[in-house]
Design a protein around this nucleic acid. Sequence first.
DNA 1: GGGGCCATGTAACCCGTTACATGATTGA
DNA 2: TCAATCATGTAACGGGTTACATGGCCCC
Lengths: 195, 195
Amino acid sequence: MERVDIVDVKTLCLGILTMKDSSGYDIRQYFEEGPFSHFAQAGYGSIYPALGKALEEGLVTCRAESQDGRPDRKVYSITPTGRLYLTQQLHHQPGPDKFRSDYLVSFLFAAHLEPAHLRTIFDEYQRTFAANVDMLSSLDSDGISPGNAFVRELGIVLYGAVAEYMAENRERFLESVNAAAEDNSEPRISLGERT
Amino acid sequence: MERVDIVDVKTLCLGILTMKDSSGYDIRQYFEEGPFSHFAQAGYGSIYPALGKALEEGLVTCRAESQDGRPDRKVYSITPTGRLYLTQQLHHQPGPDKFRSDYLVSFLFAAHLEPAHLRTIFDEYQRTFAANVDMLSSLDSDGISPGNAFVRELGIVLYGAVAEYMAENRERFLESVNAAAEDNSEPRISLGERT
DNA sequence: GGGGCCATGTAACCCGTTACATGATTGA
DNA sequence: TCAATCATGTAACGGGTTACATGGCCCC
């Protein structure tokens, strides 16, 4: 049970393949706007090599599907070996969450921002949260696993709470930043030590 | 206003230095358990080189402080050039949030987990959220900037909402995973297409 | 005709993490 | 005496992102 990052793209792909046979292109879509999109992201540049490596290692099989009027698809399926590998990865001790937000950094240092810019990115950020709630809510819940339902609802709760908080505090926040800027042409801000 | 990741360690360090002159060691502590810890992380391996580079570029100055009975500290201060650089960085269009969670991946694929392991990591994860709420609540709010107060409260709201959701749904979730496992020895799970 | 979508892949690059290296002091 | 904290740094490694490369079809 050593601490290993289980969220590498290969493992994620295997997990997806337990749900549905998919091509690399399909998998990209799931990352883009599926039930994982809020806690895992990956681009073609990591998905295709990951699938290739999984194929080499016998974790997946691959069949070419020709379509009329569209390029061929390579559809991958997980093998018993792949399932075993996934299960083992999943039983490692999960590492801590990693969250990075340019927006929150901008809000933190709002004192250094032009009011118009702050307002723009504030509204933009709020919209992304509302959009995420809508996206997750729009997904069909029929026949999904308890795990899938749980993380989906958790996402809705999380995004909803933040969207609501932002809506309720918009005016107060934007005005307090302006007020502080008027007081201090040279802003001197405390970090807020622990009590 | 091109899309640039403003959350590089150098910019983050400059932001911190607008609040308080600090050493590399201090800055590490802020990332570890300060008001940024929930949306930005960095280790010594990125902080020290970042400060060195900022020094080269004239964005910060550095003075050595000898202490009795402890190693010398290098205390950095931001320069006017540094403030200008920070302001410019902050006016770039923020990139989208990046969130990665091994735990949520594990919950998503809970069907592949031993019940005992699932329970363990579930409780562990819930505790981290409760701990984050406590940590953010324990910070002294006197004299902090509106931006700092805003992101702090947002963090409390976010972590609180998730912790509450997890507490309320713990039994239901763990049992539904077990129930599903009994139905399907070979789990066949739907991705949940969009409606 | 052009833009957008489907579809697969490679290569370079960047950045951050991890591990390594050093060393003094304090408290258990 | 041993672990932990304070304190600064370097070097290798790894992984993911970005950009590049290719090509056909469909709709406006």
